[in-house]
C-alpha cells in the first residue's frame, strides 16, 4: 500500500472542536495513479500536508509507503518527505532567484539519495526530458514562463526518485496547450519511474488521464463542528 489511512482525524491545535478532516479508511495501492476531486475548502491541503508529514494528525493511523508517519517526530517526517515524496504545487514551486539546476540541486540536498557526480547528469537528463532548453537552465526561475516553471517543478519533484508524487492543482495556472503538455509529461514520467501519483484538482476534465477517481467529499467524513475524538 502506498497510502493507508485509518480513523484519521485532524483539527488545528487552536480549534480542537472543529475537525477539518475525518477519514475512516482510505487506501491507495502502489503505482496507482489516482485523481482526487475536491473543491477548495474541502480539506484538500490538509490531507496533502498530512500525507507529506508537514502536519501531523490529531488521531488515527497515517501510513505512507508502509511507514507510520503518526509515529515519527517532526525531524523524521522532514527526512521522510525529502527521501520519499515529490511535491508539485499550483504555483511557486521554485525559488525565484535560483536557476532550474540550482532549484533541483537544493531538493537533492535534503535527501540521502546520491550526492555523487551522477546528480548533475540526472538533472540534465530530467531537464532535457521535460523540454527545458539548455539556455534556460541557469536563468533565475522567475524569468521562465509558467509552463516552464511547472515542468522544472516536475524535475525537482522527481530528482530524489520518490515513490510517491503529490500534485496539488499543478495545471490551474496553465493555459490549455501547456496544461495538456504538462499532463502528458507527468503521466509518462510517473509510469517510467514506477511512481504512485496522487493528483488533486477541482478540474474534472483532467480525470481522463487517471485510472482511479475519488471525490474528497466521500473520503472526508468530517462534518461541520464535529470534534476529533
Amino acid at each position: 500500500m502506498a497510502i493507508d489511512l485509518r480513523d484519521v482525524c485532524f483539527a488545528y491545535p487552536g480549534a480542537p472542536e472543529t475537525s477539518i478532516l475525518n477519514i475512516k479508511q482510505w487506501t491507495v495501492a502502489g503505482n496507482e495513479h489516482i485523481f482526487v476531486h475536491g473543491a477548495s475548502g474541502s480539506g484538500k491541503s490538509t490531507l496533502l500536508n498530512l500525507l507529506s508529514g508537514i502536519l501531523s494528525s490529531s488521531g488515527g493511523e497515517v501510513a505512507v509507503l508502509g511507514q507510520r508517519l503518526d509515529k515519527m517526530n517532526a525531524y523524521q517526517r522532514d527526512r521522510f518527505r525529502a527521501n520519499h515524496i515529490g511535491y508539485v504545487f499550483q504555483q511557486f514551486n521554485l525559488i525565484p532567484y535560483l536557476g532550474a539546476v540550482d532549484n533541483i540541486q537544493i531538493a537533492s540536498q535534503f535527501s540521502k539519495q546520491k550526492k555523487s557526480a551522477r546528480l548533475s547528469a540526472d538533472i540534465e537528463n530530467l531537464l532535457s526530458r521535460l523540454n527545458i532548453s539548455r539556455a534556460d537552465w541557469h536563468k533565475p526561475s522567475a524569468k521562465l514562463s509558467i509552463g516552464q516553471q511547472q515542468r522544472v517543478a516536475i524535475a525537482r519533484a522527481l530528482i530524489n526518485q520518490p515513490e510517491l508524487l503529490i500534485a496539488d492543482e499543478p495545471t490551474s495556472a496553465l493555459d490549455q496547450p501547456n496544461s495538456d503538455n504538462f499532463m502528458s509529461l507527468l503521466m509518462s514520467l510517473a509510469k517510467e519511474h514506477d511512481i504512485t501519483l496522487l493528483f488533486v484538482s477541482h478540474d474534472m476534465s483532467l480525470s481522463r488521464y487517471f485510472d482511479r477517481v475519488d471525490a474528497l467529499s466521500e473520503i472526508n467524513q468530517s462534518e461541520a463542528s464535529s470534534p476529533c475524538l
Binding site: A74, R81, A82, N83, I95, P96, F110
Partner: peptide
C-alpha cells in the same frame, strides 16, 4: 514566506 514554505516541503528542517 512562500519560499520558506517551499523549502519546508522539499524537506528542509526548521533549523535549516
Amino acid at each position: 514566506e512562500r519560499e520558506i514554505q517551499l523549502l519546508r516541503v522539499i524537506g528542509a528542517p526548521p533549523w535549516f
